[in-house]
């Protein structure tokens, strides 16, 4: 029983972080219909921003959120504006050119990080990094609990933003039907730029929250990109609520897989779920929840 409960807690807490990672990807995929294969790398950049703030300015990682998120928002906007948007006008045979472009961007970001910070492992040690509290026999990591609640908070904010504000509605309109949105007077270029920026800012939040309990090196992005698209497909494109479900499902699947099947299967379980969902529940949880 203790094993089961602890696994459940571990899965849900990790799932909270995963939802944040997935939410950004979900928005980008929803609006632009492209897979952002630089998503994990953007998270890596955010983590370095937070790390630099902590290391040089002594800024607490949670305050680092206020630096990393705007910084990544800007970076995301620039990437969209100067590398991805121009591709829309270029004649090419494969529509997947934008996806390939994100691969290139990911490589460039990783190598720039390596130039500046070298390949060394970095980590941020705070007073709460290893802090825990116990409910019964089950241990909770303080940092992960905080991360979980911030993730939920961001989901609520995004949900409000997408349904109640003008920009949010334009984003959803573009996601549903780009041409129709254009006809209705939505500046779709501007919307794509904002969306990419927001997606980057969200993954920046995830990276920053992960930093106190994890560590950092330039190649960290790849696995997280993979997790992000698994979550996105699980949750459904463009759905914030779906991303939360997707994230927690993946977190739980990995945790229970690790406990009851084997830690080595950790990654594979996510990928198999991913293919199953693609095939049997195309559209993900969004199809069930409708939001």
């Amino acid at each position: 029983m203790e094993v089961f409960l602890q696994t459940l807690v571990a899965g849900i807490l990790k799932g909270g972080l995963y939802s944040l990672i997935g939410m950004g990807m979900s928005m980008i995929m929803g609006v632009m219909k492209i897979i952002n294969l630089a998503h994990g790398q953007l998270m890596m950049v955010a983590m370095y921003v937070t790390f630099a703030c902590f290391h040089f300015l002594g800024l607490d990682p949670y305050l680092g959120l206020f630096v990393a998120m705007p910084a990544l928002f800007l970076l995301g906007c620039l990437i969209q504006k100067y590398t991805l948007n121009p591709l829309m006008e270029v004649e090419s045979i494969l529509p997947e050119n934008q996806v390939l472009m994100t691969v290139g961007i990911g490589m460039v970001l990783t190598e720039i990080a390596r130039f500046i910070f070298t390949s060394d492992y970095k980590s941020v040690q705070t007073s709460y990094s290893g802090a825990t509290f116990f409910i019964g026999e089950t241990s909770f990591s303080v940092a992960l609990v905080i991360a979980f609640f911030i993730a939920v908070l961001f989901t609520l904010i995004m949900f409000w933003f997408l349904t109640k504000t003008d920009i949010g509605r334009s984003i959803r309109a573009t996601a549903q039907d780009k041409d129709a949105a254009l006809l209705m007077g939505v500046d779709s270029k501007r919307i794509t730029i904002i969306t990419f920026g927001l997606g980057s800012a969200l993954v920046a939040a995830a990276g920053t929250l992960l930093l106190p309990v994890y560590y950092l090196f330039p190649d960290i992005g790849g696995p997280f990109t993979r997790k992000a698209f698994v979550i996105t497909i699980l949750g459904g494109l463009g759905s914030t609520v779906g991303a939360i479900f997707g994230g927690i499902t993946l977190g739980l699947a990995e945790a229970f897989g690790a406990t009851y099947i084997g830690m080595a299967f950790d990654d594979m379980i996510g990928l198999i779920i991913f293919i199953l969902v693609l095939l049997f529940l195309p559209g993900g949880f969004k199809r069930l929840t409708k939001i």
């Binding site: 602890q6 696994t7 960290i220 945790a255 690790a258 830690m263 080595a264």
Partner: peptide, 20 residues
Amino acid sequence: KEGYEAGAIDFKPLLVKVKS
């Protein structure tokens, strides 16, 4: 005896199993 993929985020599920 159990292997894991280097770079895992969370070893708790594995450690709980070991602990039990």
